[in-house]
């Protein structure tokens, strides 16, 4: 005992004091940011954050009361209780009190649920979980053919949009913590949810159901835009790809065609019409690459095309490490130009 105290006194890093500060800093880091439940930017996320704070507050009060009682009966007043008092403590504190508290919390949580399932108005976004990326299709009110995109979801602010969810081979779960709750995506069964963003900005979603080796690398960019900006963006997204402008990009398109990329990927307005992989018609306009894992830069595109397996283990796309740096760079210029 004395020895350990001496050791603690000589501890040059003072771990006993530094460690709590470090832990608190790490925990507080989760209170804001693009993927935080506690920094809501949507109606549903606000409800969930409020629920969390109520639950946390209740838990803290109960913890303090319980431990206060423990200290009281074991340190301050250690006389034994009478049989009658003990009986009332057990019945009141062990049965009645938890039943009432749990019934209250359950009613509160359940009463918030219908709102989470409110129908959307206008826009429907269909998201399909693939291994390990997201197929995203926008269907504005009255439209017959969807606008196909991938790995990024854009929503208008201040409007409730309908989200329909499917999965291709295995179960995934769709979750953008800043905007709302999570919903499972199940092969062969369509599930639905709706989201009503309240603040424009860029957020991040994450697959929340283990779906294979690159589950942790299956993220999703989420961009909330003003209504007008969204309408303009959707119109642009629906249009065919812009033709390559620079020489490098034109050469990149030739490499794209020669390597057969179009067998798996679609670039609308060109011969490439594959449906196996993500639609690349406007890939350069997205905020991230490879389902939220890499920045949308020429270097990242080259790294990805050269060896997808190194970035996302188990990825279906083969590596193209036989291409020269020149070819890869041209390909990256072509894809980056597809805005």
């Amino acid at each position: 005992m004395a020895g350990s105290r001496r050791r603690a006194g000589r501890d040059p890093l003072n771990v006993g004091r530094v460690l709590p500060a470090v832990l608190i800093a790490i925990l507080l880091g989760g209170c804001s940011g693009v993927q935080s439940v506690l920094d809501p930017a949507g109606r549903d996320a606000e409800v969930l954050a409020r629920l969390f704070w109520w639950m946390l507050g209740g838990a803290v009060i109960l913890w303090v009361l319980m431990n206060g009682l423990l200290v009281y009966v074991s340190r301050i007043d250690t006389r034994p209780l009478s049989a009658r008092a003990a009986e009332w403590l057990i019945i009141g504190g062990g049965i009645v009190f938890p039943t009432v508290v749990l019934a209250g919390l359950l009613s509160f949580a359940l009463s918030e649920m219908p709102e989470q399932r409110a129908p959307g108005s206008g826009l429907t976004v269909s998201v399909t979980g693939e291994s390990w990326w997201w197929r995203v299709e926008y269907l504005p009110d009255g439209a017959e053919t969807p606008v196909v995109s991938a790995n990024e979801i854009r929503l208008p602010v201040g409007r409730r949009s309908e989200i329909t969810l499917n999965a291709h081979r295995v179960i995934h779960s769709f979750w953008i913590p800043a905007l709302g709750g999570k919903t499972d995506m199940i092969p062969g069964r369509e599930t639905r949810m709706s989201l009503e963003p309240t603040r424009a900005g860029e957020f991040r979603g994450q697959c929340a159901e283990f779906c294979g080796e690159s589950h942790a690398l299956m993220a999703l960019g989420a961009v909330v835009m003003d209504e007008d900006a969204f309408a303009a963006w959707l119109e642009k997204e629906a249009a065919p790809a812009v033709p390559p402008e620079s020489d490098a990009a034109r050469r990149g398109q030739a490499v794209f065609n020669a390597e057969g990329c179009g067998a798996c990927h679609a670039v609308r307005g060109t011969a490439a019409s594959g449906r196996v992989g993500p639609d690349l018609t406007h890939v350069g306009g997205r905020v991230s690459l490879a389902a939220g894992i890499l920045p949308m830069t020429a270097e990242a595109l080259m790294r990805w095309i050269r060896d997808p397996e190194a970035i996302k283990p188990g990825a279906m796309m083969p590596g193209y490490d036989h291409l020269s740096d020149d070819d890869l760079s041209a390909l990256a210029a072509y894809l980056e130009g597809l805005t």
């Binding site: 019934a103 219908p114 399932r117």
Partner: peptide, 15 residues
């Protein structure tokens, strides 16, 4: 039994 049945009071849809 009350806790199991309670969601039916609040939830208005199947999904």
């Amino acid at each position: 039994v009350i806790f199991v049945g309670m969601p039916a009071l609040f939830i208005e849809t199947c999904l």
